[in-house]
Amino acid sequence: MTEPRRTLLHTSTIPVRWGDMDAYAHVNNTIYFRYCEQARVEWIEAMGYPVLTEAGTGPVIINAACTFLIPITYPATVIVRLYAGEPGRSSVMTWYDIRTEGDDRLFAEGSAKVVWMDHESGKSVPLPDALRQTLVV
């Protein structure tokens, strides 16, 4: 089976906070999802789409996953690279590589499926054309 095409779309730099750690003195597993979320929000907002709207359409996540490979500890700066695959009608798969500044090792990798949704009806709608154009290379 061939790997899906992945295009690098955004890189986020996020400082690890003392409170991100758990009792085992490494970043708590739930925080990795926050790091991916931050990269995704930055990317969507950089495209000109507000992530919080009371009406209209916008992105939602229908699933998310993370594989933890190496513990991250404080102090550190996390580098999250966001990749996307081929767009569907209303969705696009995204992937995340999580590394730390000054260290080339892969600390974690994640994924999330982004679906464009009509907030009023709760139903999926086609991805905006301008967003779709950035996903097709």
Results as ranks from 00 to 15, higher is better:
residue 3 E to L: 14
residue 3 E to Y: 06
residue 4 P to W: 07
residue 4 P to Q: 09
residue 5 R to K: 15
residue 6 R to M: 12
residue 6 R to F: 03
residue 6 R to Q: 15
residue 8 L to M: 08
residue 10 H to Q: 08
residue 14 I to E: 06
residue 15 P to T: 02
residue 17 R to M: 01
residue 18 W to G: 03
residue 19 G to S: 11
residue 20 D to T: 09
residue 21 M to Q: 10
residue 22 D to F: 01
residue 26 H to K: 11
residue 27 V to W: 03
residue 30 T to M: 09
residue 30 T to I: 10
residue 30 T to A: 14
residue 31 I to E: 04
residue 33 F to Q: 04
residue 37 E to S: 13
residue 40 R to H: 14
residue 42 E to R: 07
residue 44 I to L: 14
residue 46 A to Q: 13
residue 48 G to Y: 07
residue 49 Y to L: 02
residue 52 L to D: 13
residue 54 E to R: 07
residue 54 E to S: 09
residue 55 A to V: 12
residue 57 T to Q: 13
residue 58 G to K: 04
residue 58 G to P: 03
residue 62 I to L: 10
residue 64 A to Q: 15
residue 65 A to P: 00
residue 65 A to C: 02
residue 67 T to F: 09
residue 67 T to Q: 15
residue 68 F to E: 02
residue 68 F to K: 06
residue 69 L to F: 09
residue 71 P to A: 10
residue 71 P to F: 06
residue 71 P to N: 09
residue 73 T to G: 12
residue 75 P to K: 09
residue 78 V to K: 00
residue 78 V to Y: 01
residue 80 V to W: 00
residue 80 V to A: 10
residue 81 R to C: 11
residue 81 R to E: 15
residue 82 L to H: 00
residue 84 A to S: 09
residue 86 E to R: 12
residue 87 P to F: 02
residue 88 G to R: 10
residue 89 R to E: 15
residue 90 S to M: 05
residue 90 S to R: 07
residue 90 S to Q: 08
residue 91 S to N: 11
residue 91 S to Y: 14
residue 92 V to A: 12
residue 92 V to I: 15
residue 94 T to N: 11
residue 97 D to R: 01
residue 97 D to W: 00
residue 97 D to P: 00
residue 99 R to I: 03
residue 102 G to D: 09
residue 102 G to V: 10
residue 103 D to F: 07
residue 103 D to L: 01
residue 105 R to P: 05
residue 105 R to I: 04
residue 105 R to V: 03
residue 105 R to H: 13
residue 108 A to W: 04
residue 109 E to C: 05
residue 109 E to R: 12
residue 110 G to I: 11
residue 111 S to I: 03
residue 113 K to L: 15
residue 115 V to L: 06
residue 115 V to E: 07
residue 116 W to A: 02
residue 119 H to C: 00
residue 119 H to P: 01
residue 119 H to G: 05
residue 120 E to A: 10
residue 121 S to N: 04
residue 122 G to R: 12
residue 122 G to H: 02
residue 123 K to C: 06
residue 123 K to E: 07
residue 123 K to G: 06
residue 125 V to T: 15
residue 127 L to D: 03
residue 129 D to E: 15
residue 131 L to I: 05
residue 132 R to P: 04
residue 133 Q to T: 15
residue 133 Q to R: 15
residue 137 V to W: 01
